[in-house]
């Protein structure tokens, strides 16, 4: 799924661009970075309500090209700058984590159940 389609499905706005050109293959939704680290997949979008720098650090280590902040949360400038430096696109949606994941899953973006 293209990031532009994700943007539309989640009625999201771009907080730090540009949108990645590459296809997003799967998504993971969690506020626990420990869980995100346990199930990383290739070209994965990360949906979370955790807006601290560790979200970007975790995403960078896992080569995550797209972070979606849910529940209308907007991270601080430091976090957005970290994402820019890491080449990670950040978008924001008003949907809750559950609803945002549900929308993407229903549109055909698979989850990451099972070990990497």
């Amino acid at each position: 799924m293209k990031a532009a389609e994700i943007l539309g499905l989640l009625e999201a706005s771009v907080l730090m661009g540009p949108l990645p050109e590459e296809e997003i293959m799967t998504a993971c939704g969690s506020d626990m970075m420990s869980d995100v680290l346990a199930f990383p997949k290739e070209r994965m979008a990360l949906l979370t309500g955790l807006t601290n720098p560790h979200t970007v650090r975790t995403a960078e280590l896992l080569d995550v090209p797209l972070i979606v902040f849910v529940r209308g949360k907007v991270p601080g400038e430091e976090v957005l700058n970290m994402a820019e430096d890491a080449g990670i696109c950040v978008i924001g949606t008003a949907f809750t984590l559950y609803d945002a994941c549900g929308r993407l899953f229903a549109a055909g973006l698979p989850g990451g159940t099972g070990r990497a």
């Binding site: 970075m33 955790l50 560790h54």
Partner: peptide, 17 residues
Amino acid sequence: VRMLGFGAGMGLPNMKR
């Protein structure tokens, strides 16, 4: 630590995996 998004008890098992 949990507020930072860590401490889920996955660390050592995830290293081993």
